[in-house]
């Protein structure tokens, strides 16, 4: 899908809008429906995902290309990536707790959840499957994570208003959230016309 000669801006735009990780690719949906009741919590989750994803994708790219490939250990990809991500999340949590208490209070409760967020692992896998260079991979991860932030904040702001509307009884709660996601996904599908990939 993404070839090597694409320029960085196109990679960013494709990851952010055209192939939005939540609404078009369906990755990371558990948190999308779980943590989108209020705008503040969705912002916190989005920020935690953005910061961890940019770091983890760079580290897993380095591990894959400088450790796993030279020693022909590609089959350890899944095991090593998930362990690296879990360790990284712990480190980031300890670090923010010690050096930036305000940030820790804002992001703290969302950080452990990031470990089991499939979007983080998927971004690492996809960057490698597309054979991106280090810089391209960094931009790709940035685009994917900002796309996550954009979609979850938009979704939370719609859900905050939906509570006050009259909804058929059977559709209250989760079903109406899925309908909202369906319409948002339709809107994001419109970006497909932006450029051909």
């Amino acid at each position: 899908m993404i070839s090597n000669n694409l320029n960085i801006f196109l990679i960013f735009l494709s990851a952010l809008l055209v192939n939005n990780i939540l609404l078009i690719r369906f990755i990371g949906l558990c948190s999308f429906f779980g943590i989108s009741q209020r705008i503040e919590s969705s912002l916190g989750m989005g920020a935690a995902v953005t910061s961890v994803m940019v770091m983890s994708s760079s580290i897993t790219w380095l591990i894959y290309n400088f450790l796993l490939i030279p020693f022909h250990l590609q089959y350890l990809r899944t095991v090593s990536f998930i362990l690296v991500i879990a360790t990284l999340v712990q480190l980031v949590e300890r670090f923010t707790k010690k050096y930036n208490t305000n940030l820790y209070q804002a992001l703290g409760i969302y950080l452990p959840l990031v470990t089991t967020n499939c979007a983080i692992l998927a971004a690492a896998f996809l960057g490698i499957d597309y054979h991106l260079s280090f810089l391209q991979n960094l931009i790709y991860a940035l685009g994917v994570s900002l796309g996550y932030l954009l979609a979850i904040v938009l979704f939370a702001s719609i859900r905050e208003r939906i509570i006050f509307s009259p909804i058929p009884k059977a559709f209250k709660g989760v079903p109406i959230a899925f309908l909202t996601a369906s319409l948002m996904s339709l809107a994001f599908l419109g970006f497909k016309g932006l450029f051909r990939l």
Partner: peptide, 12 residues
């Protein structure tokens, strides 16, 4: 993609 969300909404 939108169809997937739509079907889920109606099933639930």
């Amino acid at each position: 993609p939108p169809g997937a969300f739509l079907i889920m909404a109606f099933l639930i």
